[in-house]
């Protein structure tokens, strides 16, 4: 039951689980790495050690992939924060509505003051794209946070107590993992009586919960068998501080890395939900996925309408993925130094 290895049972979730567990192990191995360092360092043992974070940062600073990802992410976040200020027009005002002709000219083209033209409701496309970044950031951040909170709670419960609590939590998590995540998000979002941006966020958060839970549980178990936890127990430290001071902070590494990657999936999933009309039905607040969905009707004649939001989604998701993956590599002790 305490075995952190993937279940022998195959099935839909098996590959997903294996990946999560390998992530957890990668994070846990940091305990063994300094071991060999001390032993092999011999006479130079008395120099100050190099912390994992410091050495990871040293390598990340020169890592092109990481820098590219981080640049995209930072630009995106800044843009999302200042978008309403830099957007040339009000994204919800139909300024070009007078040019929209249902049969002959449904989409107003580029013109002075409107470099990308308007959409089917005569609203400035550029402004909508810029301000749309906000919703994307909200979804990415809040869905990830929600998933983190749920996953941390379950994972801590399972990893700290072990025994039947662990078994129970992990069976629930396994069931959740065996359902394809997008399908589950669709189902949850579809149940909502009044769909909104928040139901999308909730749906995606719930989908992320089992991933975080399994990941944290794995690295908590590794912590439970670590030397410093044994040493703390040898000093009579009580269970609560053992869990929250000695295990949890050391188990968070792989979870934080995963969180970066989850932002990317959350953005894509949110776009997919909006695209399928499960998001906020009110299209006055621009959202990339919803814009993409609306562009379907005009795809033959006006592909740019779909291209811009799609490109935005891809670039931002790519930024988070690049950053997350290189973080994970840098924090993996196997690739240390």
């Amino acid at each position: 039951m305490n075995d952190p290895r993937p279940h022998p049972r195959g099935g839909l979730g098996a590959r997903k689980k294996e990946r999560i567990d390998s992530l957890a192990r990668a994070g846990a191995r940091r305990d063994d790495a300094p071991d060999t360092e001390v032993a092999s360092a011999g006479t130079v043992d008395d120099r100050a050690g190099v912390s994992l974070v410091a050495s990871a940062w040293r390598r990340l600073r020169r890592n092109v992939v990481f820098l590219a990802g981080a640049t995209i992410v930072v630009l995106f976040v800044i843009l999302a924060l200042v978008a309403p200020l830099v957007a040339p027009h009000d994204p919800s005002a139909g300024l070009l509505l007078s040019q929209v002709r249902q049969q002959t000219n449904p989409i107003p083209g580029p013109q002075p003051g409107f470099p990308l033209g308007g959409d089917q409701a005569g609203r400035d496309l550029l402004s909508r794209l810029l301000v749309g970044s906000r919703q994307t950031l909200y979804v990415g951040v809040f869905a990830t946070l929600g998933g983190l909170i749920g996953g941390l709670t379950l994972g801590t419960l399972a990893g700290a107590f072990g025994g039947w609590i662990d078994s129970l939590v992990m069976r629930v998590v396994d069931v959740m993992l065996s359902i394809p995540s997008l399908l589950m998000a669709f189902s949850i979002a579809a149940i909502a009586a009044r769909p909104s941006q928040w139901t999308v966020i909730l749906a995606i958060a719930i989908v992320q919960v089992p991933i975080f839970a399994r990941l944290l549980r794995g690295s908590m178990l590794a912590q439970r068998h670590s030397d410093h936890v044994l040493a703390a127990r040898a000093l009579g430290v009580k269970p609560a501080p053992i869990v929250f001071r000695h295990m949890l902070p050391n188990a968070l590494g792989p979870v934080i890395v995963q969180a970066t990657l989850v932002v990317a999936t959350a953005i894509i999933d949110a776009a997919a939900l909006s695209f399928l009309g499960l998001g906020n039905p009110d299209d006055r607040v621009p959202e990339w996925g919803q814009m993409l969905g609306a562009a379907q009707t005009y795809l033959a004649g006006y592909p740019h309408l779909a291209f811009y939001p799609a490109a935005c989604i891809i670039v931002v998701a790519l930024g988070f993925t690049l950053m997350g993956e290189s973080l994970r590599e840098a924090l993996d002790p196997k690739s240390r130094r």
């Binding site: 305990d31 300094p34 001390v38 994992l52 030397d227 044994l230 040898a234 430290v237 001071r245």
Partner: peptide, 17 residues
Amino acid sequence: GRDIAMIFQDPLSSLNP
């Protein structure tokens, strides 16, 4: 920790990083 204490082999991994 109060009546009986113990120290271990590897001082680095015995401390919480």
